[in-house]
Computed example of a mutant assay.
Amino acid sequence: MRLTCRLILFLCYNCCLLVILLPTFCHTQRSCQTPDKNVGQCVHFSDCRFVLRQYGMYKEHMPPVIMRFLQRSRCRPKVDGYHLCCLLQDVIPANANSKLK
C-alpha cells in the first residue's frame, strides 16, 4: 500500500512537471518558414532583432509593406501573444542580458 502511494505521488509529480514544462520546450524550439521562404524559429516578437530594428527605425509609423510581412510571419495563435517566424540569425538567445541587442 505504501509503495503504491509513493508510486502514484511520483507519477503525479512527474506528469505535472511535463504538463507545465513541455509546452515551453515545444514553443521555444519550433522551426518555421518566413514569408520569403527562409528557415526561421517561432519566437515572441520581442525576441527577434529584425522586429526591434524595424521598430527602432519607424516607431509607430512602420511602412505597410513591413506590417504585412510581420502579419504574414505569425506562427502561433493570438491567445499566446504575438509570435512570429524570425530568421535564425535574428533570434535573440533566451540567456541574453538585454532584449535590445
Score class of each variant (00 low, 15 high):
H27A: 11
L88S: 03
L70S: 03
R68K: 11
P77K: 15
K101L: 08
K59P: 00
V43C: 02
V91S: 07
P23H: 04
E60K: 13
Y55P: 00
C48S: 07
L88T: 13
L88G: 00
L70T: 03
C85W: 13
D80Y: 08
V51C: 03
C75A: 03
L70A: 11
D90H: 10
C15M: 11
G56C: 03
I66S: 04
C48A: 08
T24M: 10
C12N: 04
R2W: 09
Q41Y: 05
L87A: 10
H44L: 05
M67A: 12
L9Y: 09
K37H: 15
L7Y: 03
K59N: 13
N14R: 03
R53T: 10
K101A: 06
I8S: 11
V43L: 02
N95M: 05
L9M: 13
G81I: 09
H27G: 02
L87D: 01
P93G: 02
G81V: 08
H83M: 08
G81R: 04
T24L: 14
G81C: 09
L18V: 04
L84T: 05
V79Q: 04
R53V: 09
N38D: 09
H27R: 14
C12S: 13
D47H: 14
H44T: 06
V39F: 04
L100R: 09
F45V: 02
N97E: 10
R30Y: 15
L21E: 04
F50W: 07
L88I: 15
L7F: 08
N14C: 05
L84I: 12
M62K: 04
C86P: 00
S98A: 08
H44E: 05
L21C: 05
Y82K: 06
R2V: 09
R72V: 01
L11I: 15
C86W: 06
H27M: 14
R74F: 01
N14T: 10
C75L: 06
R2E: 09
L84V: 12
L52T: 05
V65C: 03
L21R: 07
C75V: 02
C85V: 12
V51P: 00
I8A: 14
M1G: 08
S31R: 15
S31Y: 07
V65M: 09
S46K: 10
R2T: 06
C75K: 05
N38E: 10
